[in-house]
Design a protein around this nucleic acid. Sequence first.
DNA 1: CGCAGCACTGACTGACTGTTCAGAATGGGG
DNA 2: CCCCATTCTGAACAGTCAGTCAGTGCTGCG
Lengths: 219, 219
Amino acid sequence: MSSTAAGAATDELDPRRTQILRAALEVIAERGYSETRIADVAERVGVSPALVMYYFKTKDRLLAEAIRHAEDLWYVDGTRLMEAIPTASGRLEALVRITCLSDEEVGLSSESWALWIDLWCQALRRPAVAAVREEFDAHWRETIRAVVRHGQAAGEFEPVDADEVAVALSALLDGLSVQLALRDPAVTEERAFETAMRFASRLLGFAWEPPQRVRRRRA
Amino acid sequence: MSSTAAGAATDELDPRRTQILRAALEVIAERGYSETRIADVAERVGVSPALVMYYFKTKDRLLAEAIRHAEDLWYVDGTRLMEAIPTASGRLEALVRITCLSDEEVGLSSESWALWIDLWCQALRRPAVAAVREEFDAHWRETIRAVVRHGQAAGEFEPVDADEVAVALSALLDGLSVQLALRDPAVTEERAFETAMRFASRLLGFAWEPPQRVRRRRA
DNA sequence: CGCAGCACTGACTGACTGTTCAGAATGGGG
DNA sequence: CCCCATTCTGAACAGTCAGTCAGTGCTGCG
């Protein structure tokens, strides 16, 4: 999943290290943060548990670095995809799509949202995790804000407060994603996508109509 | 906190039992679901750990019942408060207020949102918890939907799809509450409240202006 | 060759904690 | 007063797991 050419650069630095980090991410996604045992991670890599301790002095450190690693991967893939799109409304739609729809090329939605919720949960009590989370969220809102400003400069969007939009839209996306991650029957991926887009278009005053029942085109 | 006269009825049934449940909720809020030890709960009540096992055969069962207990408390307090308000827009504002603002008489916001995030996290993997969560969320959306329909019947709100509004508004509130629970500096309680209300009023087409800097009145 | 440094392991331990169990206290009914 | 059910406890058990440590194999270098 993900990180096709993304992690290549970091892989060069210390293959074993990033190999362990990736394994840790997989285990976290499967078993949850607090249920992740270093034995699991070691087994997945095919090494002894002691080696994991050799690279990361402690379990906390391993998990913290794994989370940060996931953050990096996500942004490398995400921003690359975004920059390929010219119009602001198109970019915004891409943003919404990668958070709501899982069948995209940037395919980390379903399981990575679980990881995201887990991150929140840990951030409640572990200051180290909280710092990563806040940083990540600030970055995310900044991304939205930039798209909004871009669209406003180009005359695509109305001149509303970009900060306000960023807070509101990111919150809405978070909330919808929680329902998706928990597979709530009341919130399907399409519904989440359309709800978020309707919200965004109304807020920013640009035209947007939901795709017809057919799988949508519109690169 | 909360449950002034609320838990009275259930307290009669088995005082010790509900005493343990309440203690469990406190510990969960402090230490987190997965870090909660039965020894903690026992100590808080002032009994031996074995007694906790005596009432609830297993730890999982204790925690599951504690969550359900919290759910009950929340709704008893919540609906009682809501029914005292006549207008739909007033009710909606009350809904938004009890989720965003912590200094209200229904004072479970700050720490109970932590419990809520924890609930999501556990629901990811434990089917039993997932069931409680889904039921709770469905109930919550139904509450919103009812208020919307009520307002539409009274001509306060525009005739938009009530389901759609319920999904969108509950998602927005969830997302904002996450930021509040994690004490993100970018999202203060007032800001969350105003953002949600602006969203709701725009969506439903009713007039709403943010309160002036002064602490608002308007019962 | 010999040596130093690195990646790596197996076996162990120490702490923690859910759970059990045999039995003590308590209190009401006969 | 005795009996029985209920409530409650202290102590021990058993499993799990992060973290340690002494030592092994390997590689490259002088």
